[in-house]
Every structure is written in structure tokens, then in C-alpha cells.
């Protein structure tokens, strides 16, 4: 009896090992790719962040020197400010707008799928192309936006040239590309059980109240997910800023108002060949994003509801 049990156990162990090996073999393309193209570079960048390195000569160890230098670099703070600006001012309005659009696109209206398609289309336009298009719209002299503002009696700002307006311009443009967020919200909205609304209606709750008591809590996991994703994307803001800055024939735009963190990082790395410093910048960004993400997760328990938990 005991012997049989023992044999069985070995058999299972053997089979498990075989399954494990087969599994590993199947996932090996990813595993190898991950080690070579992600993990190794990430770790290497940490090493380089502790050195002075110009791509050609061997790295020179400077310890925490690069990090110390960061804290004395005006442009580090400026680029961080620009990035935080676009994150803090941009992310929440973009999400609110996307949610509002999702609610509209969720309504039972004739031709809804057409509206959904039209609304989603701009998302398919590449970032550079949509930036160039928006630079025309935002042209202070002949742009459609200032023309529209003129009709209602507002003298539009000099969007692309006035350093106070360059970042709001980008945020404005961002509304155009919220299609993906909307589609995901739309999916979440369609998952909210109908019976809640029926019950609320019987109880006489207004649409407004229904939204805050039923809809918003039900889709809160999606909100959390979007918030984190957008936060990360926003901290890496690059392409649109670079294209807008090109309009004024510079890297950072008017008075460096478009010098975003990743643009400055790129400049340090590829224009100034300060690879060590740029690596340190990347790790600082990692730490900042990590802290932001952690804060959001810590507070999320208070506003995110999962169907199963509650």
C-alpha cells in the first residue's frame, strides 16, 4: 500500500516536471526576450546611472554623483514640473471626458455604432500626424480654434508660442485622442448589471444619483486601471511635445515650456552623450512613478469596489 502511494507520488512529480519543462519551452521566447531585452538593460541602466558614460569610453564609476547632480539641475526640476503639469492638469479631465463620452455612446440611440466609430477614429491617427494637424487648428492667426473663439468675442491666445499656453494646447489636443479610454469605459459600463438600475428606478432615484451610486462604483476598477495607465503614459510624454516644440525650431519649445522629462532625458543621452546621467534620470522617473502608483493603490481601497468583495 505504502509502496504504491510512493510510486504514484514519484509519477506525479515526474509528470509535473515534464509539464513544467514543456511549459517553459513554450514560454521560452518570451522568457529569453525578457531577460535579454528587458531585465538585463534595466539592471545595466542602473549600473550606468552610477557612472559617467558616453557610449564609447568605458564607464567611469561616480557612485551617486549623477543623482546628486540631478538635484542641482534647474532643467531637471523644470522638466519634472512640465511633466507633472501635463499629468495633473491633463489626466483627470481626459478621463472625465472619456467617461462622459462613454455614457453618451452607451445610450440607446439609433446609429450608435456609427457614432462610436466616428468617435474612435482620431485614436488611429499617429501622434505625429495628429500633432501637425492640431498645430494648424491652434494657429493663433488663422487656426479654426481662435476663429471660433473670435466669433464668441474672445481673443484667442497665442497657443503654440506663448509659454503659458503651450501645455494647455497639448492637453486640449489630448481630448481628441481619448477614444481608447472611452472604449474601455464603454465595455465596463455594459458590464454593470441592469437590475441595479431597475431597483433604483423603483426607489425613485434620479439619473444623477444612479450614476454616482451605481455606475461610478461599478466601474471603479476600470477607473483605477485607466488612472494608472494614463499616469504612466503621461510621465513618459514625448512625441507630441517634441513635434510642438519643433514648430518654434527648438527642443524645448518656447522658454522650455515643452521640455518634458523624457525629452530632456533624450537630449542628455543622445545630444550631450551623458548616458550615465540619462540613466539616473530614468531611475528617478521610475521612483516618482512608483510612488505615485503606490499612493493611488493605497487610497484605492476607499473608492474602488470589486463585485466579489462587496
Amino acid at each position: 500500500m505504502a509502496k504504491i502511494l510512493n510510486d504514484n507520488a514519484i509519477g506525479i512529480r515526474r509528470r509535473n516536471r515534464k509539464v513544467l519543462i514543456v511549459g517553459l519551452l513554450f514560454t521560452s521566447p518570451w522568457i529569453i526576450g525578457f531577460f535579454i531585452f528587458q531585465l538585463y538593460p534595466i539592471l545595466a541602466s542602473f549600473y550606468y546611472s552610477l557612472t559617467e558614460y558616453n557610449l564609447f569610453s568605458p564607464p567611469k564609476w561616480v557612485g551617486l554623483g549623477n543623482y546628486r547632480k540631478l538635484f542641482h539641475d534647474d532643467k531637471f526640476y523644470l522638466s519634472m514640473y512640465n511633466t507633472l503639469y501635463i499629468t495633473i492638469v491633463g489626466v483627470v479631465p481626459h478621463m472625465a471626458y472619456a467617461l462622459a463620452m462613454a455614457l453618451l455612446l452607451n445610450a440607446k440611440v439609433k446609429g450608435q455604432s456609427l457614432y462610436r466609430t466616428i468617435y474612435f477614429l482620431p485614436t488611429l491617427v499617429p501622434a505625429v500626424a495628429s500633432s501637425l494637424l492640431w498645430m494648424w487648428l491652434l494657429n493663433s492667426q488663422y487656426g479654426l480654434i481662435n476663429m471660433g473663439l473670435h466669433y464668441i468675442g474672445i481673443a484667442g491666445p497665442n497657443w503654440l508660442v506663448d509659454p503659458d499656453w503651450t501645455k494647455p494646447s497639448l492637453i486640449l489636443m489630448g481630448f481628441w485622442g481619448t477614444g481608447t479610454i472611452t472604449v474601455m469605459y464603454l465595455a465596463a459600463l455594459q458590464d454593470v448589471p441592469k437590475m441595479y438600475y431597475e431597483a433604483a428606478e423603483i426607489d425613485g432615484a434620479s439619473k444623477w444619483r444612479q450614476f454616482w451610486v451605481i455606475t461610478f462604483p461599478s466601474i471603479s476598477p476600470m477607473t483605477l486601471f485607466q488612472l494608472i495607465m494614463m499616469l504612466i503614459a503621461s510621465f513618459q510624454y514625448f512625441t507630441e511635445g517634441l513635434v510642438f516644440a519643433e514648430a518654434t525650431q527648438s527642443t524645448g519649445g518656447p522658454e522650455n515650456s515643452l521640455l518634458f522629462y523624457s525629452i530632456y532625458l533624450y537630449q542628455q543621452a543622445f545630444s550631450f552623450l551623458n548616458m550615465g546621467y540619462a540613466s539616473a534620470m530614468a531611475w528617478m522617473l521610475f521612483v516618482v512613478v512608483m510612488i505615485c502608483a503606490l499612493v493611488i493603490f493605497r487610497t484605492s481601497a476607499r473608492w474602488v469596489y470589486y463585485g466579489g468583495d462587496k
Binding site: 528587458q38 545595466a44 513618459q236 532625458l265 530614468a282
Partner: peptide, 14 residues
């Protein structure tokens, strides 16, 4: 995702 942000540096590292 952050990993991929650092990936920029991977090119250099490589």
C-alpha cells in the same frame, strides 16, 4: 510598463 520606460536605456546598455 516602467520597465519599458527604462527600455530606452536598454538600447544604450546593449
Amino acid at each position: 510598463l516602467l520597465g519599458s520606460s527604462v527600455l530606452v536605456l536598454s538600447v544604450l546598455a546593449g
